[in-house]
Simulated assay, not measured.
Amino acid sequence: MSHRPRRLLTVFAVGAAALLLTACTPTVALDPAAGANNPRCADVIVHLPDTVAGKAKRETNAQATAAWGDPAVVLLRCGVTPIGPTTKPCITVNGIDWVLENNPIDTDLRYITFGRVPATEIVIAHGKGGVTDASVLPDLADAISFIPQKKQQKCLSTADVTSPTVTPTPLPSSK
């Protein structure tokens, strides 16, 4: 057998193996957000990392979405409706403000960016086989930063908010 047919056979075998391996990891089915066609979401999606919390990026079937892990333990959707002021927990990680939308003891945590239009939502699976938000949020910060933060919309802590000063009302004096 000459070298050329052997080389073609090798290339074919490698290509077939790659196809079989990708067939083992099905596409993650997600619904696109209402604002998924926003050009700023395209900026986010093209800058997403290949790994998040040590989990490999997966292919998704919807515009402006991403997923990591097999099974998927981190889901992302860009173009969700921004949220307004809230009393829900808000944290800042690497310059990105995130609002925790559900109970922190839930097995899946849902975060939405705060002060960015369009907003980005992530769902993080915790527990057995899951990952922590502390390992996910920093990995996404660079990509999310392509949507600018509105100047007047930032996470605030109770220390940032001043309560009105109460001026005592003088009591009437008896003369």
Rank of each mutant, 00 (worst) to 15 (best):
L156D: 06
G127I: 15
V166S: 02
P138C: 11
L171G: 02
F146P: 00
F146H: 12
K150Q: 15
P148T: 10
V161S: 09
V131L: 08
A159E: 11
T132K: 03
L171H: 07
K128D: 15
P168F: 10
G127T: 11
L140S: 01
C155I: 13
S163W: 12
Q149D: 09
A143S: 07
Q149Y: 08
P138Y: 15
K150A: 15
V136D: 04
P170T: 12
P164I: 10
T169I: 15
I147V: 15
D139K: 01
P170L: 10
T120M: 03
P164A: 10
V161N: 02
L156Y: 08
F146M: 03
L140R: 02
V161E: 13
T167I: 14
V131N: 01
F146Q: 11
L140Y: 03
C155T: 05
P164W: 12
T120P: 00
L171A: 13
L137D: 08
G129P: 09
T158N: 05
D139V: 07
T158I: 08
A159F: 13
L171Y: 03
A125Q: 05
I122A: 01
L171Q: 14
I147W: 13
A159C: 00
L140G: 03
K154S: 09
D160F: 12
T162A: 14
D133Q: 06
K151H: 10
P164L: 14
G129C: 13
D139Q: 03
L140N: 01
A141P: 01
I124F: 11
T169L: 14
Q152N: 13
T162N: 04
L140M: 04
P148V: 06
K128N: 11
D160L: 09
I124R: 02
P148R: 06
A143C: 07
D133G: 06
G127R: 07
V166N: 03
E121K: 00
P168Y: 11
D133N: 09
D160N: 09
C155L: 15
A143N: 04
C155G: 08
D160S: 02
E121G: 01
A143H: 06
T167D: 13
P148L: 08
P170Y: 14
K151N: 12
V131M: 08
C155Q: 12
Q153R: 10
V131Q: 03
T167L: 12
K154I: 04
L171V: 12
T169C: 05
L171K: 06
D160V: 07
L140A: 03
K154H: 12
L140V: 02
D142M: 02
F146C: 00
S157K: 12
V136Y: 07
S145K: 06
I122K: 00
C155A: 03
P148A: 09
I124G: 02
A159R: 03
I122N: 01
A134V: 08
T132V: 02
G127L: 14
E121P: 00
D160I: 09
T120W: 07
V161G: 06
F146T: 12
D142I: 01
S163I: 14
V136R: 05
V166D: 05
I124W: 08
L171S: 05
L140C: 00
A134F: 08
T167A: 09
S135T: 08
A141D: 10
P164G: 07
L156T: 13
G129R: 13
S145G: 11
K154T: 10
L171C: 01
E121H: 01
E121S: 02
C155N: 10
K128W: 09
P138T: 10
A134S: 09
P164Q: 08
